[in-house]
Write a protein that binds this DNA or RNA. Structure first.
Lengths: 268, 268
DNA sequence: CAGTGGTCTAGACCACACT
DNA sequence: GTGTGGTCTAGACCACTGC
């Protein structure tokens, strides 16, 4: 009742295990609790698109029957996925696949807030697509996206304005293949977070991301785009975003003007 | 079996309600699960110093008996506290009160990493206390610490050096009363994180914090202390740290040199 | 009302650490 | 071996949603 993905606990050897036995070579016994295996199976269904963002997944009892485990075990698996913001539980209604398209959690990954702390106070951001073209990956972009230098990528440049003032200048790079067909027009036409468009149009959900933050000075071009004087210190926010299966699917570099905004972070 | 803090659940008409019934006036019934109440009780014991940082708390079974609930309910309460990094579970050994003095998690709240990503590669930070004096709280410090302007506070200024180069210039303010007796000498003499000293010497544990990050340029004095040229962009990191009961106990402002380091943040 | 997630219990057994 | 946390089960009941 170990290692084997879904070894049963009551019935006799159910998950038949086609040649997937606990190899005696394994240095680590690699004990994996049942609920972790269930979690992996759920993750797989998310990744495969069986359950799409904003849709409901089967109820806990149904999943318990499907995986041949108790409801409590499914619950623990779902609990963890909900804690990671991949699923959203709603009492009385069901469990839903998290999406970037929700009105309530718009810009889930954007931590820049106005000085008063209330993003609603300045209304929705204005967005301007400056550029969108297919190029070949430079070395650093290729490394970030686990591609080879020279592979086709999409490069997008855009500006976000809050309360009418340009505040964020962003360059982002997407792997060419999964995002085939993405154009400046489609980006400009879409109302709502870019990540929401990725979900509906390309079946790519950004599950988590990592950011590296530095303080920098803008070059002449950046000054003009952001309409700031030279020597205006800016936040450089470099992000790599990952899908369910932890494949990097976007590299992004933002320049944030922090005169009237700040980057918020909670430490636990 | 509601509202009442520890109403029994097995005896007849559990929430006996000694005049504490679900008042019909109440706009919200304010249903609070048992495990949340247990969590609050544990939190109270942490806050009161009954269980000190790095010490073990009673076993789950003992707590279950003490609070007259099942072990599973205690478990859920402890699970949440462990998720918040207030407790640390160690299988086979027990559950321990989290501390800032651990070798493994030193500088839990410091998110600045060297470019190579490995903090161990540059060895332990060098620390220099520049200044430590008692002053009267300015308006902004008072607001951050929920005090009145003019109340006594301790102001500390220090520099952190990584691999010999000054990288962080920090000013921090502490409420005068809880930190009575703190001097530059004691700070300088102590090896280990400042927050660890706060725990052992003043019984103050920083449970969580919030940071506001901006890009700024240093003034002349800051340039000299950090040994950088004017117009070097720096990260301004403003932190407010809170104790168990969410009382703000420190305000801190750091200037980070991000030439060879970056501020790391994970988004979920 | 039925169906969903949320809470609580009680008991069994496993994995790990110390002695 | 004993005691600790960790997993899993089965069943009961509560709270919320929507038909």
């Amino acid at each position: 009742m170990n290692t084997t993905p879904l070894a049963s606990h009551e019935s006799a050897t159910p998950a038949a295990s086609d040649g997937e036995g606990p190899s005696p070579m394994a240095a680590t016994p690699a004990f994996s609790p049942l609920y972790q295996q269930i979690k992996a199976l759920i993750l797989q269904s998310l990744q495969s698109g069986e359950w799409k963002p904003s849709a409901a997944i089967p109820s806990e009892n149904v999943l318990a029957a499907r995986y041949k485990v108790s409801q409590g075990t499914v619950r623990k698996a779902v609990d963890e996925l909900a804690a990671e913001n991949l699923l959203v539980r709603r009492q009385g209604k069901g469990t839903f696949v998290a999406t970037h398209a929700e009105r309530t959690v718009q810009y889930r990954f954007l931590k820049l807030l106005p000085d008063n702390g209330d993003p609603k106070s300045e209304g929705p951001a204005q967005r301007r697509i400056v550029d969108c073209k297919r190029i070949r990956a430079t070395a650093d972009v290729a490394r970030a996206l686990s591609m080879r230098a020279g592979d086709p990528v999409l490069q997008v440049r855009r500006i976000l304005l809050f309360a009418g003032t340009p505040t964020i200048l962003e360059d982002l790079w997407l792997p060419g293949t999964p995002f085939k067909g993405l154009t400046a027009e489609r980006l400009a036409a879409y109302g709502g977070p870019m990540y929401a468009l990725f979900e509906t149009e390309f079946g790519v959900h950004m599950a988590r991301a990592e950011e590296k933050i530095r303080a920098v000075l803008p070059d002449a071009e950046q000054c003009e785009l952001l309409q700031v004087k030279p020597n205006t210190p800016l936040l450089s926010v470099e992000r790599i975003a990952y899908t369910y299966n932890d494949v990097p699917m976007e590299m992004r570099r933002g320049l944030y003007l922090t005169d009237t905004h700040y980057y918020r972070n909670a430490l636990n």
